[in-house]
Design a protein around this nucleic acid. Structure first.
Length: 159
DNA sequence: GCCAACGTTGGC
DNA sequence: GCCAACGTTGGC
C-alpha cells in the first residue's frame, strides 16, 4: 500500500467485533464510518486526512480484543447521515444540516493481520505503555497513534 | 457552573 | 454478567 509516510497521521479506530469486523470491511472493501457520538472521537475524525493510516481494533472480542488489521482514510469528514435519519437509533434531533453535530469519514480496507496484536500483548510490552488504548478505563473509539507504535504494530502483524 | 444521577463502554 | 471508568444530562 502506497502510504505517504512523510505527512500521514495515524489513528486507531475501534469497533465491536460482532458489530462490524475487519472481515466485514475486507468484504465491503470500503465503508462509511458513521454513528460516532462522542465529541472527542468526533474531533479526531474531523482531523483525519485522506491517506492517513488506521489501526483497526476489535473491542468486546473476548480473548481476541486488539488490533486486527489496517485501513486508510479515503474521504475526509462530512456530515454523518445517520444523525438526520429519524428512524435511526443515532438520530439527533438537535443537529441541523446547517451546522451538523456529528461527522463521518470513509475508510478503505488495507490489510488483515496474520498475527493480531491483542490488548494483552500491548499491555505487556513497555514499548506500548504510552498508547491511549492501553490506558485503564479508556473508552475512546477514535484516537491518535504515534508513528512508532503504528510501525511496530504493522511489523508484528505481518511477522 | 457545580455535581449527583444516570447511561454506556468495554475489559475481565 | 459484573462493575469500574467515564461521558452526558439536568436540577439547582
Amino acid at each position: 500500500m502506497g502510504y505517504n509516510t512523510i505527512t500521514m497521521q495515524y489513528w486507531l479506530i475501534k469497533n465491536e467485533r460482532d458489530c462490524y469486523s475487519i472481515d466485514d470491511l475486507q468484504k465491503d472493501k470500503k465503508t462509511a464510518w458513521t454513528e460516532v457520538r462522542n465529541y472527542q472521537a468526533r474531533n479526531f475524525l474531523r482531523e483525519m486526512k485522506k491517506g492517513d493510516g488506521l489501526l483497526f481494533y476489535h473491542s468486546n472480542a473476548e480473548n481476541e480484543t486488539g488490533v486486527v488489521g489496517e485501513a486508510t482514510v479515503v474521504k475526509e469528514a462530512y456530515a454523518d447521515p445517520t444523525q438526520f435519519d429519524a428512524k435511526s437509533e443515532y438520530f439527533d434531533s438537535k443537529s441541523t444540516t446547517d451546522d451538523p453535530r456529528w461527522s463521518s469519514v470513509d475508510v478503505r480496507f488495507v490489510t488483515k493481520y496474520e498475527h493480531p496484536i491483542y490488548l494483552s500483548d500491548l499491555k505487556h510490552d513497555p514499548f506500548f505503555n504510552d498508547m491511549i488504548v492501553t490506558r485503564k478505563g479508556n473508552r475512546l473509539s477514535i484516537m491518535p497513534v504515534n508513528k512508532k507504535h503504528f510501525t511496530r504494530i504493522q511489523k508484528l502483524g505481518h511477522e
